[in-house]
Design a protein around this nucleic acid. Sequence first.
DNA 1: GCTAGCATGTAAACGGTTACATGATTAG
DNA 2: CTAATCATGTAACCGTTTACATGCTAGC
Lengths: 177, 177
Amino acid sequence: MLTLSILGFLAEEPLHAYELRTRISGLSGHVRPVSDGALYPALNRLHKAGFLAREEMPGRGATPRQVLSLTPEGHAELIARLREPADVEITDRNSFLVLLAFLGRLPNPADQARVLRRRLEFMNQPASYFYADGRPLRAAETADPFRKGMLTLAAATSRADRAWLEAMIATLEHESP
Amino acid sequence: MLTLSILGFLAEEPLHAYELRTRISGLSGHVRPVSDGALYPALNRLHKAGFLAREEMPGRGATPRQVLSLTPEGHAELIARLREPADVEITDRNSFLVLLAFLGRLPNPADQARVLRRRLEFMNQPASYFYADGRPLRAAETADPFRKGMLTLAAATSRADRAWLEAMIATLEHESP
DNA sequence: GCTAGCATGTAAACGGTTACATGATTAG
DNA sequence: CTAATCATGTAACCGTTTACATGCTAGC
């Protein structure tokens, strides 16, 4: 998820690590800093892999900026990760939303639709959080008001997400029949 | 989150690790197995810390079951974790939903309300995912349909969650004025 | 003079994933 | 007979968090 965000934001424009960090921090909605201990090692990994180019530039403070940009390989890597997302990015809503943030970078609408369809198929599998005697419990059957709330909220989110996915998939299929 | 789930489920009834695993797996909604490599070490940590008692019992298969139960210290630990959740559990929706699953275990409605209020306060901070020229971008201003969708879905979820939190807090305050 | 912001990093500890390892029972 | 389920664990790897480390500039 961190890697995808890095590649995704750098595909828009070259950035130095500090600026990249503030953008990634915002991706959670509420600004929550990405730890440097995660970001800088990730950047080094991507640089070693040949996905990133660095260029030194004078910064506002004392330390010079390391302006980062995607190499052609880095761009290819981003496209590959968007076309064929890892399981977590389909399965985990937070990860999927981050994926969505960059899915517009995929050039082919059919590929975009395929990704959305994967998510939709996953969501269409019946979900249940609790079991009693081996049978799934519905929200109405739970006495605990917190569990009831949890189930209701999860269901509402799921409904809204599926509706959007279906509408968006229809639009994309209209674009490239 | 794993630790909380372990303590939470064991507070309901003693379970062996295998059964515990299937319950925790269900907590994501869609059954996704908890890796043994995470579960067993976590159980060992909790056992070493004195939160868990083990009792050997014959199982259905060859391997005998290690039936796990909460010690009084384990129960106290659960209550403490519920009363004073870590930041992630307030901040991350998935984690918060897991917390919710066990919040009914807190004996005091005022404590329950305090936790919900913490989440509500966090959610009431204005959220924005993208910035242009330092100003937050609204869904309507985004040209990218995927980002627009992402922002719309996040906003809808946020609205529903806040509404539920407010209603539930009101109910709890009514219970213990 | 001090704090916040700009700007970069490293090291230790922790926890999770993946793969490995074993073995009995039951249903198809 | 073979796959799934029951049942327990370990080891290597990988990435994240937390804490440490440094230093300049701008505004109060």
